[in-house]
Amino acid sequence: MQVRIRTLVRGLWEDNPVFRLLIGLCPALAVTTAATYGMAMGLATSFVLICSSTIVSLLKNVIPRKVRIPSYIIIIATFVTIVDLVMDAFLPDLHSVLGLFIPLIVVNCLVLGRSEAFASKNTTMASIVDAIGMGIGFTWALTLLGAVREVFGMGTVFGLSVVWDGFVPWTIMSLPPGAFISLGVLVGLLNVIGRRLSERS
């Protein structure tokens, strides 16, 4: 049980995909103009991650080693197509905002990376726990990045106004350069916090 909890927590902080491992960055930068979009992207990716990790770990003894990468990609692409079609049908507005980056979950290095590095070597239960941890880690990272850009770029968080009257929005934060700069500063800040925490313990 303790091992399970450790696997789950690892994705949240120690091995956070966005801030620590620096994988899955394309959607992290592209769709985070607002907290809601970051969260939606994170949840969609988590769904694909959890489903494909489950299937990969169930089939790990069936798939020959030589063709494992193409096999993983097909499993992932199947779930991505499901997410793509479901979102298009039930959440068309969100689907049009996230646009190209929903089909691009197929080549998100986070999903393929967890299949290759974890799910293909561990039990199904452990793989599901690992995928949930990584999924939550990815989702909170994208939500935080989206919230930061939304506050400075538009003065709102999740669409609610949080700034004083007369606040002048920094338009640059909603544009591409703002994504790179916010992520750079956040990575730096989290490094400082991480170092303080490890010094204390």
């Binding site: 350069p177 994504a179 790179f180 700069i181 992520l183 750079g184 500063v185 990575v187 730096g188 490094n191």
Partner: peptide, 8 residues
């Protein structure tokens, strides 16, 4: 960190 800021 600095690489992202340069990219920005």
């Amino acid at each position: 960190g600095i690489a992202f800021i340069i990219a920005g």
